[in-house]
Amino acid sequence: MSTDCDIMRAMHAIEVSGLVKRYGALVAVDGISFTVERGEVFGLLGPNGAGKTTTVEVIEGLRKLDDGTVRVLDTDVVRNSKEIKQRIGIQLQTSSLFESLTAREVLDLFGSFYRKKLPADELISLLNLQEKRNSLVKNLSGGQQQRLSVALALVNDPEVVFLDEPTTGLDPQARRALWEVIEHLKRRDRAILLTTHQMEEAERLCDRVAIIDHGHILAMGKPRDLVKSNFEEVAIEFEADGRIDLGSLKGLEGVSNIREEEGVVTVYTKEAQGTLAVLLSSAAKGEWQMDNMRVRVATLEDVFLKLTGRRIRE
């Protein structure tokens, strides 16, 4: 008897439910649940030590979990990690692998670990490494090594791809090229779990994101929805000298929050017009000095800041 429930479950590429992972007394992951679908890019955002790496490692079958269940491609990763490894691809941030092999040789070597493999040449051109195919890994630039590590993650044409800050160290052009690769994978119905520090990247690439801190998911959803649900406000940002009275600004109508960091003030307000008028007139009166003012809609970065009290890089 096939129930609806089974069919639903079969549709998830990744299904994490009540995941708990402890290191001694420290609870690194404290009951996380989420799903990732085929053809979806899912982003895990969180500061260092938030538990995102541990979460990913448990899903990859590299770590044992203490509680909860993790299913990848409808298979229990704890019991069947061997089988799962054939069907997933993992990119790690720091993998200076086999430095005296050429890019091609490393791809061939890794390909030989799998039953199913993509031709090395195809991966080389997908990641735009044609000119470097016969260069030793140690002679590749940081960005080229990074692209090679992504190519290695795709060597078995995986159904689920884990990418750990894949665009770190890439120049803007290479970053956009890699985004296209990820979008290409998405169109081919692959599920992609991405961890990133770059909010712009998350907003651009991710269908959904989860913001993790202290082992909990603080918020989860489409980036735009997260911003909308957390912020009716716009952000007014400017540089101010010491004479500004932040306390009095708090009392203004529509102002929900004010942050100051290294002389840059961000005022979150629902009444952009009114707040701006007050700010501009008091600055115009010479009560304090205002520079480089801009008004922007709130971003994922603001959501992160609001929820965790920290910037993601801190």
């Binding site: 990859e60 079958g61 590299l62 061997k82 490894k85 054939q86 993992i90 790690l92 720091t94 993998s95 200076s96 692998l97 086999f98 890794f110 670990f113 799998y114 039953r115 290695l152």
Partner: peptide, 13 residues
């Protein structure tokens, strides 16, 4: 140290 062993243990090797 360079996490190559970890990378390899993520493969069916």
């Amino acid at each position: 140290e360079k996490k190559v062993l970890r990378r390899l243990s993520a493969t069916p090797l």
